[in-house]
Amino acid sequence: MSVPLSQMWTVAAYVLKQKLSRRERYPLVLMLEPLFRCNLTCAGCGKIQYPAQILKKHLTLEQCLKAVDECGAPVVSIPGGEPLMYPQIGELVDALVKRRKYVYLCTNALLLKEKLEQGVLKPSKYVSLSIHMDGLREEHDEAVCRDGVYDRAVEAIKEALRRGFRVTTNTTLFDGASPLRMRAFFDEMMGLGVEGMMLSPGYSYSKAPDQEHFLRRGRTHDLFSKTLSNARKHWKFNQSPLFLQFLMGKRDYECTPWGNPTFNLFGWQRPCYLLQEGYAEASRS
């Protein structure tokens, strides 16, 4: 598993503290969505399908930090929309680092090179740039519905690594993905020098506009088994081997929605990041 020791230690100490205080349900990763706006319109994305007045809005820096403090999770993931379009992204990340939160900034990387050149983000052991990459050039550009995005993302990854950033990738596998091509993609990403790769199946969820290409359970296990069996030694994943076994259908886990609370313009999403059954005013709800 490819997560720095200091991060593992912080998370382990946090979990231990929760256990000692007999708290059974606690958040591990806060999903903080400062805006829904994005500079891409991927067909599989359920996050950007809002009317214009909603897409124009974003959380204030104060709202973001209040949510982080209220939640208390040691890890904060900033997905979107595209977080690099958030006007105060630099200040937000700085404030999280000051609070010693481990931050995963999930970006499609279209604006990354420009932001790095402007000095908006600073390298830190607390900050990982998590680049959305859904496969090799052909598959990625198809998944994000625009040609040329893969090449720009690769260029930005190289630039970020050159500047000393922690860089990971996050990949969603949709129905029809080729295990062989995915394996070639893992080689390609590791060749670039990323710290680790994160995988998830394109879960079917009711708000996504494209239902057909999401994976059902059986297909998920089959696809991940073919993709991950005899994993090459140099592949590093930012997920525990147990989770990868779960994806391959070799292990079962109970759903723990409280582990991944989500905060956005609408409040605290119930019950978690993937399911959108409503919103609450306090994270405990």
């Binding site: 319109t41 067909a43 599989g44 399908q49 809002y50 009317p51 198809e142 519905c145 949709f174 506009p209 494209d210 057909e212 290409h213």
Partner: peptide
């Protein structure tokens, strides 16, 4: 009354357009 922002944005529609 408002435009359905999810309509016509499926992956299939993108593949056909492409």
């Amino acid at each position: 009354t408002g435009r359905d922002m999810a309509a016509g944005n499926s992956w299939q529609a993108w593949l056909e357009r492409r």
